[in-house]
Simulated assay, not measured.
Amino acid sequence: MTPELTALALAALLQIVQIGLVGWSTARDVGGSEWAGSPRDTPPPKPLSHTTGRLMRATSNHFEGLAFFTIAVLVTTLSGQSTAFTAACAWAYLGARVLYVPAYVASIGSTRSLVWTVGFVATLAMILAALF
């Protein structure tokens, strides 16, 4: 397995952890898993906390970034253009995504934006490296 594919697999596991955190935080906010496990046709019985909202937004943001990162990894791997540079980009993406969650939850705006940018630029660099 290429380093890029390993980073992609770990990024998928990170996304699973984030989904679990959202579920846990939601259940905590509403007083149990009954509403959290429902089809959510009605508003929550209690307001969701800022932390839960931030966890939800961080998870949604990672879904968006993960789509582009997956494309970058597939283009790099399937074209046989895995290099030390693209591997470093993949690990930079993963590291940025790991740091993004606590930066978002703690509401550290400038740090959150910086780590998001690192992940985005790393993804873009992988795609460009495969093209050129």
Rank of each mutant, 00 (worst) to 15 (best):
M1H: 04
M1D: 01
T2A: 03
T2M: 04
P3F: 08
P3S: 12
T6V: 12
T6W: 08
L8W: 06
L10Q: 00
L13Q: 01
L13T: 02
V17F: 10
V17D: 01
Q18L: 04
G20F: 02
V22K: 01
T26E: 04
A27N: 07
E34P: 00
W35R: 07
W35H: 12
P39D: 12
R40E: 11
P43W: 08
K46H: 12
K46I: 05
T51Y: 09
R54A: 15
M56C: 08
R57G: 04
R57Y: 13
R57K: 06
A58L: 04
T59I: 03
T59G: 07
F63T: 05
F63Q: 10
F68Y: 14
T70S: 14
S79I: 00
Q81I: 01
Q81H: 14
F85R: 05
A87C: 01
A88L: 09
C89Q: 08
W91P: 00
Y93A: 03
A96M: 08
V98I: 15
V98T: 06
L99D: 02
Y100T: 05
Y104G: 02
S107T: 07
I108G: 00
G109P: 04
S110C: 09
S110R: 14
T111L: 15
R112T: 05
L114M: 14
V115R: 10
W116M: 12
T117L: 15
G119E: 13
V121A: 14
A125G: 14
M126K: 11
I127A: 13
L131E: 11
